[in-house]
């Protein structure tokens, strides 16, 4: 019992530290106007979230968050900044009272809604009483692979995942239509006259 409690205390402490960091980084993202710094902070934000997912034993999600949020997203955001501007433009300094009230009410409603949520890890929570037992108990027998996340994602929710793949594909089509394919044009071989230092090629 004592060991269990000590473990609980340690996990709670780690959670508190990480959530504090997360909140700090979040505030930093809102306050800082330098978009380069904001991009880096959003990568750090994703890494912290990934660690929190690991603590909740959601390793698959953590892997995705780390790879997408801290990896490719940061690269794409950096690309956007390189193409546009590095400083966020400030539109006026007047504070919008109406927006503040709307944000306050929405936030209060969301916090009020969390009071109805079941406690973390509560075995009686609806999420753990409906389909989860079926998946955890029968999937090794039915699908024959140990990683239940993969079983659910690829087999039980196969059509769902197909939808996700199509969404990703559609997103790529959208970006390609707006930005173009990005093929580096085969330029005529650079002569010494127009590109002496060879700076056209990075």
């Amino acid at each position: 019992m004592a060991v269990g409690r000590r473990r609980w205390v340690i996990e709670a402490l780690i959670d508190i530290v990480l959530l504090t960091l997360l909140a700090t980084v979040g505030i930093g993202i809102v306050v800082i106007r330098n978009l380069l710094a904001v991009t880096m902070l959003s990568g750090i934000y994703s890494l912290i979230v990934a660690v929190l997912f690991v603590l909740m034993d959601a390793v698959d999600v953590a892997l995705t968050e780390a790879a997408v949020g801290a990896g490719i997203m940061v690269i794409l955001m950096l690309g956007t900044i390189a193409l546009t501007t590095r400083e966020e433009r400030v539109h006026g300094t007047g504070h919008n009272l109406l927006a503040f009230v709307v944000v306050l009410i929405t936030g209060a409603a969301l916090i009020y809604a969390t009071l109805d949520m079941p406690g973390f890890g509560d075995p009686e929570a609806p999420a753990h009483t409906h389909l989860s037992p079926r998946f955890t108990q029968d999937s090794p027998e039915e699908i024959g692979i140990p990683n239940m996340v993969t079983s659910v994602l690829a087999s039980y929710r196969g059509i769902d995942t197909l939808g996700e793949v199509i969404v990703i594909f559609a997103a790529a089509v959208g970006v390609l239509l707006v930005l173009g394919g990005g093929a580096v044009r085969r330029r005529r071989p650079p002569t010494d006259a127009d590109d002496p230092a060879g700076e056209g090629r990075r």
């Binding site: 794409l76 690309g79 790529a172 173009g180 093929a183």
Partner: peptide
Amino acid sequence: ITVAAVALSLYYSFAGRFVDREA
């Protein structure tokens, strides 16, 4: 395959414009 190719296409789209502009 789709995710890798899409991510690479997106990267090409952004980076390709950058190279074009730098040229």
